[in-house]
Amino acid sequence: MSTTYDQLRVLYRTVLLFATVGLVILAIGVIQFAYFEPFGQSTGLTARIVGVHVYNSDSGKVEGPDRSEFPRDVEFAAVVDWSSLPDNVVVDARWYDNFGTVRGQVGPGTPASLADKTIVPVLVPEGYHFILPGRYTLVVERLQQDRAVEVLARRFVRVDR
């Protein structure tokens, strides 16, 4: 019986040891989250996204009304009003697709330097014929030391299959 209990105790202690390693992994995860999502970064600033429209890649201009849904064979772009932001911050605007990949970007730079880059198009991935379907997220971000630390505006768009 004592041998049996000892063997069980080894199993018990082993699983506790593995759990300790598990806790270390989860703690690293918390630190990683805190590093990329630092607390106390809110400045209260808000950027203005004027709208998301059909994009004409030949002319480089947007056309039509503000929309939240597009077919996959129609290119689209967001219009960002940089003038709503002060000039002492570094910002950019990015489109993320369903997989979290950046599919279009303007910036980074100060709002004044981006004043003539108000249109942020979604790019068709290289080698593809259409925009990939799914949910797209446009974020206007404030950067600090090349790292996005705050979202100043956000907009979601659906691309149909």
Partner: peptide, 17 residues
Amino acid sequence: AQHALVPGPGLDTSLAF
């Protein structure tokens, strides 16, 4: 998370949790 966090590694970590 998608409405509150900065897209990128922070959001990915949250979704992994």
